[in-house]
């Protein structure tokens, strides 16, 4: 087993507020990991550190064994574009673009030509049950539809790792589970590792494993079939 992403003793403070204090986490290739924990415990901050969006004050973040935290910003941002996908609580689609263009966006940003990028984007609509919505703008989509478009955008470039922060947080539970199901199926199919922040147990149950962040420290919960008695 090889770790795709690893945090070692990661610490980060926002001014006087310590958000992470020595967080450790290791994520295997192809794994779906749920990060849980109380509000304000540092989950989003940890996710942003793992994704190279935030640089920790101390500790190391490794991507395929390479130090992400010491890379120059330009290199880190290229890596985020090439290797990572993102889905957030509110899809954050670009309102001026059609759904199809939104999905194609990561490819366009990676220099793929428009026709080719749109051709790659299109099959995602059928796959995620979005047939016929290709030309809609984000204001013309329901929350669940917009979130599926955001999911397609997060996966279209076949990222090595998909980072998702409360991707179902704005959806009702049935719609949320549909999004989760699609996310996990699609990620498994293309071998994408998923790191998912959620406070909902039913959403976390789609993951292979979960970690808990408390007071800026992460710990893995024991996995496997432990003994259970009443």
């Amino acid at each position: 087993m090889t770790a795709v992403i690893e945090a070692r003793d990661v610490a980060l403070a926002f001014g006087e507020t310590p958000a992470l204090r020595g967080a450790n986490l290791s994520v295997e290739a192809g794994e779906v990991l749920a990060i849980m924990g109380p509000s304000g415990s540092g989950k989003s901050t940890l996710l942003h550190c793992l994704a190279g969006i935030l640089v920790p004050d101390a500790g190391e973040v490794l991507f395929n064994g390479r130090r992400l935290d010491v890379m120059p910003e330009a290199q880190r941002s290229a890596l985020r574009r090439d290797k990572f996908g993102f889905v957030f609580q509110f899809g954050q689609l670009v309102p001026e673009l059609t759904a199809e263009e939104n999905v194609a966006l990561p490819l366009l940003l990676n220099g793929v030509r428009r026709a080719a990028a749109l051709a790659e984007a299109r099959p995602w609509f059928a796959r995620l049950g979005l047939d016929g919505l290709e030309q809609r703008r984000s204001g013309e989509l329901s929350g669940g539809q917009a979130q599926r478009v955001a999911l397609a955008r997060g996966l279209v470039a076949r990222p090595q790792v998909l980072f998702a922060d409360e991707p179902t947080g704005a959806l009702d539970s049935l719609t949320g589970e549909q999004v989760m199901e699609l996310m996990v199926d699609a990620a498994r199919e293309q071998g994408t590792t998923v790191i998912l922040v959620t406070h909902e147990p039913r959403v976390a149950a789609y993951a292979d494993r979960e970690a808990i962040v408390r007071d800026g420290q992460a710990r893995a919960l024991s996995t496997g079939a432990g003994s259970v008695a009443s």
Partner: peptide
């Protein structure tokens, strides 16, 4: 509570799989 939480989530994963 953490041990219990892990046991619950393990069962929830099984049920989620069954549901799928």
């Amino acid at each position: 509570l953490d041990t219990q939480r892990a046991a619950h989530l393990r069962r929830m994963r099984e049920l989620t799989e069954l549901r799928r």
